[in-house]
Design a binder for these strands. Structure first.
Length: 535
RNA sequence: GGGGCGGUAGCUCAGCUGGUUAGAGCAGUGGACUCAUAAUCCAUCGGUCACGGGUUCAAGUCCCGUCCGCCCUACCA
């Protein structure tokens, strides 16, 4: 991808009545790191996140709290979801709420077009309705009745029989798109990633698609169907459209053309909506389908999918309060292969923090800055004739930068970080072998000492740049300590795809005392209580 | 029932289209060093690659079967 290309990346929009946990945090951080990488590489980047506020569940929980759904949503968004972004240091460019006018207008324009073009028709929806829940149930939510209800299907929650009801509403001709979708998966194997997710989607679509009921009339918390305001739009149809409406669909064609199509990062549970329904909707509307739909895996706690009901849900602040936001970002992207499930444990988090961040990167920065301060009064020395060892470091840096960019391009941040980390490991070994503290005792080795420390400092310069999307806080601290800004400018301005070019740090720069990048943590046990529980 | 993904050193995982004595990190053990966040560096211990067949000159890597785990099967990242 050449410099200046559009890179529009989205997270799913969250249902605000959930309590933010590290799974949400993981999604946000992954999208943010990819966005920061592309942005700093010079691509025309835009990152979108937001909240999905319509639907019966929101209506019901709001009512239970004596509020209107709008008030309830405002409160949750302000108290939980916006703060989550701050907790994790997310640099999103936009935050869309499906209750915003720009969204509702865009959605209405979209469904009107589909209606006008004949992709929507009136039909009868038939489904099992639970009076207790006041909603239609899927087969999976029903169980065989027992006792007096023997032989009947009952609601899993109320254990009472459900009724087979019919409702007149609107349907989207999704079945029309089966062949085109299959052709899409075939022609663009990287449309759905990773491979395992693609397989699931292809198999699913091959089994046949039915039309989708896209309106509801039993409650009114949603976007009205423009030609029949007694109906509101099915929440998923509404929610998926956020990716388009936020970019200006139907309202700001110039911006929409500039941003679209998007790259969607989603959890694998909502893969089908994004890889089947969403592209079908776009095809119907004559809009280009997304560039990619990437499904990441689950966080496993104790070998099982993390879940609130099993009390394995962990609030992001529990981690950031002890380890900091940088460590959160680093840990989840480094330790988990993006696209696969990953095990989370406090022990692993703590071990990686200590071994990799504190002892590896943090200590490296600390020892280099300390030696420049001690042996050169804080002035970065010039390098002279490089030896093979010095050249090996340069080669490592060059390769790491190339490999990291390639890995980020293919949605493999874990590999990108591993590639960058070769610099940390090589540099620590290099310093130990070159023994600058020995060179410092011999005035005749003055130039050699300067070259060794320049090499180390320049390596740190490259590290700061390459790691800034992952560790924005620590790398900024390091950038300041290296005294790099006066000659090179702000860290965020350093072109990432040029980070591997040797010799950027100016000799003569003044280093300053470096506060520990990742201080040792004496008591790495989580901040008491397990997950917070919703009211 | 149908579908997807896994089962490789104590732990977390790499091993692409099959090819020399199966790798990494962490943990463990021994040593070196002192610039540094009691840190770093070197060495080393450690595996019947779930199980049973088969194809092949050659299989962790392909085929068949079995066992185990996780997930999806239309509104929880």
């Amino acid at each position: 991808m050449s410099s200046g290309d559009s890179f529009y990346i989205t997270t799913p929009i969250f249902y605000p009545s959930d309590v933010p946990h590290i799974g949400h945090g993981y999604t946000e951080v992954a999208a943010d790191v990819l966005a920061r990488w592309h942005r700093q590489a010079g691509d025309d980047t835009w990152m979108l996140t937001g909240t999905d506020e319509h639907g019966q569940k929101m209506l019901r929980t709001a009512a239970a709290g004596g509020m209107t759904p709008g008030e309830w949503a405002d409160r949750l968004v302000e108290e939980s979801w916006i703060p989550l972004l701050d907790t994790l240091d997310i640099a999103n460019d936009d935050f869309i709420r499906t209750t915003q006018k720009r969204h509702e207008d865009g959605v209405q324009a979209f469904v009107s077009k589909l209606h006008d073009d004949g992709f929507i028709y009136t039909g009868e929806y038939e489904g099992y309705y639970c009076v207790g829940c006041e909603e239609y149930k899927q087969q999976s939510e029903l169980v065989e009745g027992t006792g007096p209800f023997e032989g009947q299907l009952v609601c899993a929650i109320h254990s009472k029989p459900v009724e087979l009801l019919q409702e007149r509403n609107y349907f989207f001709r999704m079945s029309d798109f089966q062949e085109r979708l299959l052709a899409l998966y075939e022609e663009r194997p990287d449309f759905v990633q990773p491979e395992s997710a693609r397989n699931e989607v292809v198999q699913f679509v091959k089994q046949g698609l039915s039309d989708l009921s896209i309106s509801r009339s039993s409650f009114d918390w949603g976007i009205p169907i423009p030609w029949d305001e007694k109906h509101i739009l099915y929440v998923w149809f509404d929610a998926l459209l956020n990716y388009a409406t936020a970019a200006g669909y139907g309202q700001d064609d110039e911006n929409f053309t500039r941003r679209w199509p998007a790259v969607h990062i989603v959890g694998k549970d909502i893969l089908r909506f994004h890889a089947v329904i969403w592209p079908a909707m776009l095809m119907a509307a004559g809009v280009e389908v997304p560039k990619h739909v990437f499904a990441h895996g689950w966080l496993l706690v104790g070998g099982e999918k993390m879940s609130k009901s099993k009390l394995t849900g962990i609030a992001p602040e529990q981690i950031t309060e002890v380890f900091g936001s940088d460590a959160f970002r680093y840990y989840f992207l480094r330790a988990i292969a993006f696209g696969q499930d990953g095990s989370f444990s406090w022990e692993d988090l703590s071990a990686r923090y200590q071994a990799e961040l504190a002892n590896g990167f943090g200590n490296l920065a600390s020892r280099v800055v300390a030696m420049i301060t001690r042996y050169f009064d804080g002035v970065v020395p010039a390098e002279t004739a490089p030896t093979d060892a010095d050249l090996a470091i340069r080669a490592t840096v060059t390769k790491a930068a190339i490999d990291a960019d390639a890995a980020m391009e293919r949605f493999a941040p874990h590999e990108a970080i591993a590639a960058i980390w070769t610099i940390v490991d090589e540099l620590n070994g290099y310093i130990t072998e070159q023994e600058p503290w020995v060179l410092a005792k011999d005035e005749a080795q003055r130039e050699r000492l300067g070259t060794v420390l320049y090499t180390a400092a320049e390596g740190l310069r490259a590290l700061a740049t390459l790691l800034s999307p992952v560790l924005p806080k620590a790398t900024t601290t390091l950038w300041d300590a290296l005294g790099a800004a006066p000659a090179l400018g702000a860290l965020a301005e350093q072109p990432l795809r040029d980070a591997g070019r040797w010799g950027q740090l100016a000799a003569g720069a003044t280093v300053t005392k470096l506060a520990g990048l990742f201080p040792r943590i004496e008591d790495p046990t989580p901040a008491a209580a397990p997950a917070r529980v919703t009211a």
